[in-house]
């Protein structure tokens, strides 16, 4: 009884997994065209992250997002990968802009000299 139920669970899970892979693959029309776009988006994000880092403006989670995007791309999850890459890209741009806006030291007015 126990063994059989485990086997059935596994089988069911396998079926579902296969089904979902098929669905995913189907919804993205086979293989590559989107993979290239996602890869480009990831490269853009990485460049933006490095640019922010070059002025000490990198944010905490940007590199993690890019890493997750790479993993999602490898797993064929293009939508997820694209979303992560775009968000990381935005973070890189914003972090750079933030650092540039802070180039000059401004002593706050509550400190009385």
């Amino acid at each position: 009884m126990q063994k059989r139920s485990i086997i059935s669970t596994l089988l069911l899970a396998l079926l579902l997994a296969l089904g979902s892979t098929a669905l995913l693959a189907d919804s993205h029309g086979g293989a590559d065209p989107r993979a290239g776009q996602v890869e480009q988006a990831i490269n853009d994000a990485e460049a933006a992250r490095e640019k922010a880092g070059s002025v000490d403006g990198e944010w905490r989670d940007t590199a993690k997002m890019i890493e997750s995007a790479r993993k999602a791309l490898a797993a064929g999850e293009y939508d997820k990968a694209m979303k992560l890459a775009r968000e990381a890209h935005q973070q890189g741009v914003l972090g750079y802009e933030q650092a540039m806006s802070q180039q000059e030291l401004r002593i706050p007015s509550y400190l009385k000299y």
């Binding site: 403006g57 944010w59 914003l94 933030q98 802070q102």
Partner: peptide, 20 residues
Amino acid sequence: KFYFTRRGQLNFSCAHCHLQ
């Protein structure tokens, strides 16, 4: 300069919490 520089997604400097 570090102490008064806004940083990170939340945009805080050290001074925001420990002075202001």
